[in-house]
Structures are given as structure tokens and as C-alpha cells.
Design a binder for these strands. Structure first.
Lengths: 247, 247
DNA sequence: TCAATTTATGACAAGTTGTCAAAAAATGCC
DNA sequence: GGCATTTTTTGACAACTTGTCATAAATTGA
């Protein structure tokens, strides 16, 4: 029994090894140039063994995505716990997503692949459900704050848009902005020096437009964002600064 | 000379044939299942001939994308010509993008592939430049209206965000929303029956937040959107209705 | 008419994913 | 420990890619 469990632990460890190697390879050469053969070679196992862990190449992709999505979920939950009015917590979500995108630049890319063409169809049902579940969980966390805002009276929802629709809108903005950032748009040519910052300004405008109190005129959003970054994402900010310093 | 030009016309015609076939195949089986061999077979030419037109598979992809982007450019320009205040013209841009997305659902998918991993690297410089050029042209068209709004006083830009940053923000919202729509999010489960409509509401909120006059309380946005659809996109709306009726 | 040039072809090389019989290792029972 | 049974690992294979390129066919121009 302990022997059996050791074997299981071995298998689980190997699973992580395969994923770790895949991630490195994708970071180096992109998902398109990832090959199951090379994963096997690098890990010093045979291809058949790799296929015992991942039914197809796309399965590697989604499991990497799901790992990163779990990280995002964590960040979002920490943002939800930020001690402040609903509007500040919503801003914390955007900060969380922004930080996450910067910490996992490849994941933005992987998501494009995952959601394109017939990728999702090839993947195991478990992984697909896992992905959906993570998404829903994140949406729920955000939705709760929107609903609280409506309850508390920070926003008035009656204006023809439901809380979940607001979440969808906010997420579109967030997701779209980060995706465009990875699209090699010539930002400097457009005179946009700090796209992340521009995005946050637009978010503020959207919240203002929803009548989400306190309006941006009535509080110091730069200070709040700074405070969010320092107080709940200090580690991540440090990690990012570290990487910047190295490169 | 006329012989020569006939040959050239033949080649141009064949080019379109290859693209047409590719599009059909992608619509049927997705880009991942597209193969140069099958394009050749279907067109009754040899593979080598196909490769004379497209240096690689990705070249097919980007040329299809660029064709669709040119269509979008046309729609956006028509939207810019809408006879109304700046705010209504901006709404017309969103309506244009919305209609375009619905008319070319595959293109949303193709864009994900085009911008993922190392796809763009493989493509010819001409096509890449063409893509960039189309993007910039569209951005410019939108930016002009934003600048006009600033000039006319429909918005006050001083609030820490430049016209181009506003364009970036609006485009993030637009792009992100349409991308999320193609991501198989369980909208009905979330109680979102009409995501397109929800997106337009959020756009209104963002414009309100930017102080873009007339504010949504001061004009009948539903009526305006309806008018935009009827007056400048009547053909496209008709086409969409047609397709819906067929399926 | 026929040499020179352009264009079309499909066999190939080199790479992929995914399968599966057979070999190797682990397990459990005496 | 020894041995039959089950599980795990392996790499040769089949089937499919993309992309190349010598050769063949067609076109041109004189």
C-alpha cells in the first residue's frame, strides 16, 4: 500500500515534470513548436508515457492554462478581500488581472490558442469542465461584489443592465485590453506610453458611467491603486520588479 | 501582351479560388484541419502551385483575415459617415463591429490563431504590413471622431486620458466583448440573454463616464442604434436576417 | 519554328501526432 | 524466495503534416 502510494506520487511528480518542461519549451519556442517527442526526450521518458498523462497535445495546453487560471482565481479572491468600498474592490480585480497578465505573458497567448478553432473539442472532458469551473468561479467572485454594490446602493442597477451583464462588460474590457496588449499593436506610434495605465483610466470611466460611487472625482484612484498593489499584491509586484531587473 | 495579361488574370482568379476554397474548408472543419494538400486537390491543382500563391499555411490565414479586415474597414468608414453628433458616430462604430463579427464568425476565430504563438512570424512581410496598415487605418478613423469630439467640446480630454488612449479603451471593450462571445461562455446560465445588447449598454456607460455628450439620459440610445442599423447597415442586417431564416 | 523563359507538377525529405504489440517492471499470492 | 498476474513503459509504426525542388509542361518572343 505504501509502495502503491509511492508509485502514485511518482506519477504525480512526473506529471508536474512534464508540465514544467512543456512550459519552458513554450516560453522558448511557442506552443506551435512544442512537440510531444521533445517533451519525452527532455524528460527522459518515452513518448508513450507522455501520452499516458496527456491524451493529446491540446491536453498539455489546457492543463497549463488551468494552472494559470487557478493562480488568477487566487489573485481575484485576494482582491475581493481588499478592505474598502465596493468600487475599490472592483479596481482591485483589474489590478489583479493586470498583474496576472504580466506574470504569465505566455498564458495570454495560450488562451488564444485554447479558444481558437477546434482545440477545446480535443481536450478531455475533465479539463474542459475544470476550465469552465474556474471561469465561473472567477465570474462569481466578481459578481458578488457587483451585487453587494447594488445592495448597498453604490450603484443603481435599474438602468437597464443586470449585475451579471456588468460583470460581462467589465470582463470584456479587462480581457480585451490584455489581449490587445499581446497583439503587437504599435502603442508607441499611437502615443500610448503606458497601455496598462490607459486601461485603468478607461475602467474608471466605465465605473463612473455606471454611477458607481465614489465617482473618480471624489476619490484618489491613483492612490488607491497604489495601495492595492502594495497591500495585497506586494509579493507579485516584487517578483515583477525582480524580473525586470534581471532582464 | 494581352496573352500575358490574360495569364495574370488567370493567376489572380486562381488566387481568389484558393482563398474561397480555404474559407469553405475552415468554415467546415476549422483552421487546424485545413491542409494545403486538400486545397490543391479541391481546386484541381498541384500542391506546388498552391505554394506559389501562399508561402506557407499561415499565409492563407492572414490573407483571409486581411480580406475580412478590409470589410471591417469599409463598415467603420461608413459608420464614420453617419450623420449625427460624435457620440452617435462612436456608437455606430460599435454597431459596425458587432455586425461585422456576426457576419464573419470564423474571422474572430482566425484572429485568435493569427495573433497566437509564432504565427505572424511565418507570414510574408507584405501581408503583415497589410494587416498592420488596416488596423491603423481603422484606429485612425475612430481616433478622428474622438478628436473631433474633443474639439467640438463633446468630451473634455483633460481628464488624464488622451484621445488615442480612449480609442484603445473603446477598442478593448469592443474586441474583448466579441472575443468572449466566441469563447463559449455559458451566457444563458449567467442570465445574459443578449450579450451583444449588454455590450452596447456597457459602451454607453463608458461614454457617459467619459462625459461624452449627449449623456445616455439625454438621448434615446435604443432609437439611435436602431436608426444606425437601418440607415447605414440595412444590407448587412438583411443578410444576417436571411442567414438566420435559412438555418 | 524553336530556343529561352516561365509555370506546374508530384515524388520526396523531414517533421508531426497518436497507436499498440511486445517488453519490462511491479504486485500479490503461495 | 519464486512465480503467475497485472500494470506500466517502450519505441517502431501508420498516417498525416508542411515545404522543397528537380523535372516536365506550357508559354513567350523573335
Amino acid at each position: 500500500m505504501t509502495q502503491m502510494s509511492r508509485k502514485q506520487r511518482e506519477i504525480a511528480e512526473r506529471h508536474r515534470l512534464f508540465l514544467r518542461i512543456s512550459r519552458h519549451m513554450i516560453e522558448a519556442d511557442g506552443y506551435a513548436n512544442l512537440s510531444m517527442d521533445r517533451i519525452a526526450e527532455q524528460a527522459e521518458y518515452s513518448k508513450g508515457t507522455v501520452y499516458q498523462h496527456f491524451g493529446c497535445k491540446e491536453e498539455v495546453l489546457i492543463q497549463l492554462c488551468n494552472n494559470d487560471a487557478a493562480t488568477l482565481k487566487g489573485l481575484i479572491e485576494r482582491a475581493a478581500g481588499y478592505d474598502g468600498p465596493t468600487r475599490e474592490r472592483v479596481m482591485a480585480f483589474f489590478v489583479a488581472y493586470d498583474i496576472w497578465s504580466q506574470l504569465n505573458p505566455v498564458c495570454q497567448d495560450l488562451m488564444r490558442t485554447l479558444y481558437s478553432s477546434s482545440t477545446l473539442e480535443k481536450v478531455s472532458e475533465d479539463s474542459r469542465n475544470g476550465n469552465q469551473h474556474l471561469q465561473m468561479s472567477i465570474i462569481d467572485t466578481v459578481a458578488q461584489v457587483v451585487k453587494e454594490a447594488a445592495d448597498v446602493g453604490d450603484i443603481t442597477v435599474s438602468s437597464g443592465i443586470s449585475p451579471n451583464e456588468i460583470v460581462f462588460g467589465l470582463w470584456s474590457l479587462c480581457f480585451g485590453g490584455q489581449q490587445l496588449l499581446g497583439t503587437a499593436l504599435p502603442f508607441s506610434e499611437l502615443g500610448i506610453n503606458d497601455p496598462d495605465h490607459a486601461l485603468l483610466r478607461i475602467v474608471e470611466a466605465t465605473l463612473d458611467g455606471l454611477g458607481w460611487k465614489p465617482l473618480s472625482n471624489d476619490y484618489d484612484s491613483e492612490a488607491i491603486i497604489s495601495s492595492i498593489r502594495q497591500s495585497i499584491f506586494a509579493d507579485e509586484i516584487g517578483e515583477l520588479a525582480n524580473r525586470q531587473a534581471v532582464s
